[in-house]
Amino acid sequence: MIENRPVSTFISHAILIAGIAIVIFPIWITIVAASHDAARLLQVPLPLGLGDQFFDNLKYVLGKGVGDSAPLGLMLFNSLIMALMIAFGKIAISLLSAYAIVYFDFRFRMFFFWMIFITLMLPVEVRIIPTYAVVADLGMLDSYWGLTIPLIASATATFMFRQTFLSVPDELLEAARIDGAGPMRFFFDILLPVSRTSIAAMFVILFIYGWNQYLWPLIVTTDKSMVTIVMSIKGMMEALEETPQWDYIMMTSLLAMIPPVIVVILMQKIFVKGLTETEK
């Protein structure tokens, strides 16, 4: 800011703090609700401060699950496997295909590019039923493969790595060629290390994307042992009791959001850089 005006600076901060309060409020209430017992959460007005049931609730949901659901420990594990498989799978296949498209001149290069590109914005939700049929035919229902592989087939990461590779100076490849590096050696020795910021940013984006998947897991899994934590919420809210067991539901919500939130906050700098510099 150019002028030194204390009043307008104060107003700016005030608006920001108010905005943050609104944004953070639901999350605060989640923590509050997770720290009270069910009975307290049925008495109006609801508490705005922390209660003392937090660890009891935590122990309960992790070990036993809510209603007839699987224990949350297992769900967290499933979510982790799904998120990691999606993130690593996408990153791996996208790095390879982006490398081919940017660094090789070969027949059907543009055809392949367009085929990948057209999947760029087609989320699984759009092709959900026929994709379900394919996965069912391949016998991949209720498996980690069925959960993850169809979600790996989208082009966001390919597109982003393509942008990254295009911004790598040509001279690096030329220098590497003079230094006797073949295509694969250049890829592993030079290109990957040079692109590590993008790869890390993509990991954050894809980890969150994978962790937060809802509709697809809902459809391809029926076995209780394959349930992820994000999809368990729905079942809990529809449990047979007349009113939902908010303490457990909120504790579950909290557990479901903690891993991705931690990933985002820890890798914030890289993530913001990757998100805003390359997706545009």
Binding site: L16, G19, I20, V23, I24, P26, I27, I29, T30, A33, I208, W211, N212, Y214, V230, M231, I233, K234, M237, W246, I249, M250, S253, A256, M257, P260, V261, V263, V264, I265, Q268, V272
Partner: peptide
């Protein structure tokens, strides 16, 4: 401010739904 505002990005839509449904 950015750190405090970044949170909801990581929250799954269905969880966001549950939060607001509770409120």
């Amino acid at each position: 401010y950015r750190t405090l505002l970044i949170w909801p990005y990581a929250v799954a839509p269905v969880i966001a739904g549950a939060l607001w449904a509770f409120l």
